[in-house]
Design a binder for these strands. Structure first.
Length: 215
DNA sequence: ATACCGATTGGCT
DNA sequence: GCCAATCGGTATC
């Protein structure tokens, strides 16, 4: 269990303007705050743009994926399986279409809100998995393309990422991405899932389906 | 206009 | 471990 530090500075846009495989592990242990809920990030995955067969950006820009092609510091929230909203942080240089999928976190504040949203499930399952994390934060399509690095001026800012307590190298674990299909879909070609070793909020691994690219 | 499919989850065997 | 749910996005005709 972690405690929220007294002064926890926001991470600047330059932090996110690096390749996704570099930013992703550096996000573990950081705090994501949104709408009164604070998560300590424990599991993330890197997606590397148009050359990454597992990425939504693989087939180029579409109305849905447009935020991925923009500059770092904006959200990319997508709907999947008719049920779930999954949250990404767009990173890298503008046009690189790279992003980090937030797969799991520990709820460190806003527990009443999350309890309402997640019902009777065990506390460790509140944000254990990308769909559950989206539900814990109550983020949907209206929250895609949101700037989480803009200056603190005027309108209230309710989405920020702060320094938190980055994990020690020995706590960092690396492995294949979960549920990624397409060429190289077994994940072995892209070991871009990063998590905090032994953290109970980390989701269970499920292999992706190897599938040939459609013509 | 229509068909296919998913960066998942929860329930059941 | 297996599988249905459920619907917007995308590709295809």
């Amino acid at each position: 269990m972690s405690s929220v530090t007294t002064v926890d500075a926001r991470l600047p846009r330059e932090f996110f303007a690096r390749p996704s495989v570099e930013v992703a592990p550096d996000l573990l242990g950081r705090y994501l705050s949104f709408g009164g809920v604070v998560l300590r990030l424990t599991e993330v995955e890197a997606y590397a743009g148009e050359l990454d067969p597992g990425s939504h950006a693989y087939r180029g820009v579409t109305p849905r994926t447009r935020p991925m092609f923009g500059p770092a510091g904006f959200t990319y929230v997508y709907f999947t399986y008719g049920h779930h909203w999954c949250v990404n942080l767009v990173v890298g240089q503008e046009g690189s279409a790279s992003a980090v999928l937030l797969r799991a976190g520990e709820v460190v504040a806003g527990t009443e809100l999350v309890r309402q949203r997640r019902g009777l499930v065990r506390e460790r399952d509140w944000a254990r998995g990308p769909g559950r994390l989206g539900q814990a934060l109550a983020m949907t399509k209206e929250h895609t393309g949101r700037d989480f690095c803009r200056p603190l001026l005027g309108e209230p800012i309710d989405l920020v990422v702060t320094e938190g307590e980055p994990v020690e190298p020995r706590q960092l674990r690396i492995g294949p991405r979960v549920g990624v299909s397409g060429p190289g879909g077994d994940g072995t070609a892209y070991p871009w899932r990063f998590w905090v070793d032994g953290d109970p909020s980390v989701s269970a691994y499920r292999p992706g389906v190897v599938r040939r690219r459609r013509a």
